[in-house]
Design a protein around this nucleic acid. Structure first.
Length: 403
DNA sequence: CGAGATTCATGTGAAGTATACCTTTAGGCTTAA
DNA sequence: AAGCCTAAAGGTATACTTCACATGAATCTCGTA
């Protein structure tokens, strides 16, 4: 492409009028002033955490709700206010927020505590130290003075599924170790049934208070969208029917408001790209597809090589038969690919675990079935939208170094 | 014909191994008095 | 003699392997009606 041409593109971009005024207000980073339909929860959480301000340890709190029901947002909102107020009243209070699902950040006991330590300014190595040592570092870092610490663990269910409930047990016992600081834990979980399989001791001490976030219904989502759209978009860029359509799409599966906002944002971006001043319905459909597409790509790109190859093997099997396939099938074709690209093959045991992980990520849909006389295995289907399959294969092929 | 045993292919848990990385410690070298 | 650097020793977490046992319905077997 020629340089003058490039310049034109940039010029063009700058001069072009956008449907957005403030795009940030549609992203997850944005904390709106007003959170509609969540007053009950906000007040509830505030009441639980309020004792912080008198340096009394509040009850541990546990929050359940599906994705996009505003859990994280509400908690962050309340915590911000709490911190702001504590600053004004000079109460030593600190809120630590950790998202446990982040791969390689906080998905094991060690890494979680290391992350907590980092949040309070103690840098610790990624490996090599005993876990107790990490605990000690973290404890002594917060126990330097009398203060209140609120630890928010987002998506704890992931952590517990991967690393067991020891972490939680240790954390709930923190207060006995500390002399000056007080710690309170707020756990956020997407999985409502998740406490079923944690130790009753942990359960009783963690669940001092609990709260459920019900899904939004279509009307509520529409409210939320209109509210945000007012901030985000130029006058008249989004009609009420568009918001309604987004809401309907998002409400279709469990009232996910985040999804609705994504939909609106991406639709806006697409409209901008076409230099249209208005978002019409067709953009919503494109946006739905694009989001799906982008999300899976983002996930796949950051997968370790071996997982990528397992996924690729799955895709190949899927395209050849488009019927569900079994662990054994996948393993043998995976094995062939390994020698083809010069990768040391993993054992079937490990591949089985990787299939499980891909299932958790939603890239596969796997369930264990028994075929009676013909054994027991996982029945695997590819859980990726058809429209992304071809491009995904290309991506994997180049990333894995196929010719 | 039906209850119980058998079978298959792999799930799954536990224990062991390799690797990468950490801290501690001891020895050797340098330096300043 | 004190201070500093380096390399070895001893320790850990993590990803993976090895081993061994668990699973569960289709199929087989065999006693019984």
């Amino acid at each position: 492409m020629q340089q003058s041409n490039l310049e034109n593109i940039f010029e063009d971009f700058l001069n072009r009028s956008s449907v957005f005024i403030n795009k940030d207000s549609l992203t997850i980073r944005y904390t709106p002033d007003n959170i509609p339909h969540r007053d009950l929860q906000i007040n509830g959480i505030a009441k639980v955490l309020a004792p912080c301000l008198r340096l009394e340890r509040p009850s541990n709190l546990f929050i359940y709700g599906k994705t996009g029901t505003g859990k994280t947002l509400v908690v962050q909102r309340v915590c911000h206010q709490l911190e702001a107020l504590s600053l004004k009243k000079t109460v030593p209070l600190k809120v630590i927020y950790v998202n446990c699902k982040m791969r390689r950040v906080a998905d094991t006991e060690y890494r979680l505590i290391a992350q907590l330590a980092k949040e309070v300014g103690q840098d610790v190595p990624a490996t090599g130290l005993p876990t107790d040592e990490i605990y000690k570092v973290f404890f002594s870092a917060i126990d330097v003075k009398e203060q209140m610490i609120v630890i928010v663990l987002d998506e704890v269910d992931r952590l517990v599924k991967k690393a067991g409930d020891d972490v939680l047990y240790n954390l709930t016992r923190v207060n006995q170790e500390l002399k000056k600081a007080r710690v309170s834990i707020v756990g956020i979980s997407n999985d409502v049934t998740f406490t079923d399989d944690i130790d009753p001791r942990v359960k009783s001490s963690l669940n001092e208070e609990e709260m459920v976030f019900p899904p939004y219904d279509a009307l509520q989502i529409k409210d939320i969208l209109l509210e945000r759209a007012k901030i985000a978009f130029a006058e008249g860029a989004v009609g009420e029917t568009i918001a309604g359509k987004c809401a309907a799409y998002a409400a279709r599966d469990h009232g996910d408001a985040r999804r609705a906002l994504d939909l609106l944002r991406v639709a806006g971006e697409l409209a901008d790209r076409d230099a249209k001043g208005v978002i019409d319905e067709s953009y919503i459909d494109f946006a739905e597809e694009k989001i799906e597409h982008d999300n899976t790509f983002e996930v796949v790109k950051h997968l370790p090589t071996q997982s990528q190859l397992v996924l690729y093997s799955g895709l190949v099997l899927d395209s050849s038969g488009s019927k569900p396939f079994f662990t054994g099938d996948l393993f043998s074709i995976y094995y062939d690919f390994c020698s083809k690209i010069g990768l040391k093959p993993l054992t079937q045991r490990r591949v089985s675990d990787l299939i499980g992980e891909l299932d958790m990520l939603g890239l596969f849909n796997a369930k264990v079935i028994s075929k009676g006389r013909y054994g027991r295995t996982r029945e695997v289907k590819v859980g990726i939208h058809v429209s992304s399959l071809a491009k995904l294969r290309d991506l994997l092929e180049s990333s894995l170094g196929f010719q």
